[in-house]
Design a protein around this nucleic acid. Structure first.
Lengths: 191, 191
DNA sequence: CTCTGTCTGTACCGATTGGTACAAAGCCCG
DNA sequence: CGGGCTTTGTACCAATCGGTACAGACAGAG
């Protein structure tokens, strides 16, 4: 056992990794107690609502982290291009270049979505909107379309990188969306 | 040996939808018996290996369908642009414009991946390669990069469409990758 | 018809599930 | 020290898990 967490925040972080590995249904209480080093007593003391409350806490923590370090700069930084560069950098670090999964996206794909629909929807709505704002503030057109595609590409790259067991997928995707986000001309070419 | 049990194919299709809805761990035997109408006896007659064999059969069926109706034309159709158009059309239909999930992608995101790593990797490898082949045959550059991004964008759009409960995400993504796949120039060279 | 092998419903299995009860243990403050 | 809170381990629970055993229903072939 690695380290027995003494605080709820540590427990949240540990539980998050278990959900990442096994999914919501697959994360059994016994796996959680084993990996966190916490007994059921402590676990249900921190999270009286059981697994559901654990997952809610994890999602809230993820949402908070992204809001603080990615979404807010995207909206508020006077230099929108710097904020976009920061997003790319932080995203690469957070997802370990595609070796780590997006728990929000993973939850969205199975029945777990219905339990946390609001949080999941809110997370992606915030990301898309914040990024679109930065793109628009940088004076480029098609801000919403570009932002949506960038957010979606990140999620897809996580799926594909893990499927192919190739982090290069994630790196290539980041380079591409940076280009697409910052390219001056609009993409639409009718005919 | 005797006749290929036609009922089994129906069972595979029904089981696939249950996996889509609940994930591998979340799909309980009781849910499967309830939704398929098959008792445990029939189920274990068709799939002596239990859930694992059911999932393997489902993945094989999906892989076969895509190989037949998408990958093969991409590689063999003398008109590669028509094959790409067909891929886009079939993909939209298969995933119900983003209302249906890619089971292969969903399995890739949690611990289920390890059980079926070969199948999952093979599926995406085949898709990427077939699409890259069509792009290259159509005389365009950066075939592998464009193909990889298109495949990844489809997966990401499924995640995002479901998260936001907005099929429009999928439609917009299809339009964008069609443009990117067929645009004559590389992106950093505006004409 | 009977025979034969393919199907299928049901009862049952041990193990594990998420969750509760509760008492002992630690801890802080007086 | 002692009392009162928070924290924890353990025993326990009904329900469900995936899976097995098996007897009978069912067909097709003779």
């Amino acid at each position: 056992m690695s380290r027995p967490p003494r605080e709820r925040a540590d427990a949240v972080a540990a539980v998050a990794e278990i959900f990442r590995e096994f999914g919501f249904e697959g994360a059994s209480l016994s796996a959680i107690t084993a990996r966190t080093g916490l007994g059921k007593g402590s676990l249900y003391h921190f999270f009286p609502g059981g697994k559901e409350e654990m997952a809610a806490a994890v999602l809230a923590e993820i949402d908070g982290w992204f809001t603080r370090t990615v979404f807010a700069p995207l909206r508020d930084d006077p230099d929108p291009e710097a904020a976009i560069a920061r997003m790319l950098r932080e995203t690469d670090a957070y997802f370990r270049s595609g070796r780590r999964i997006c728990l929000v996206g993973a939850f969205a794909l199975d029945g777990t979505r219905d339990r946390f629909a609001a949080r999941i929807g809110g997370y992606f709505t915030a990301w898309r909107r914040a990024l679109a704002d930065a793109v628009a503030r940088s004076g480029r057109g098609e801000a919403m379309e570009r932002a949506e595609h960038a957010v979606l590409a990140i999620q897809g790259a996580l799926v594909l990188a893990r499927s192919l067991d190739d982090p290069g997928v994630f790196a290539r995707m980041l380079a591409r969306i940076e280009r697409d986000l910052l390219s001056p001309e609009t993409h639409d070419r009718p005919n």
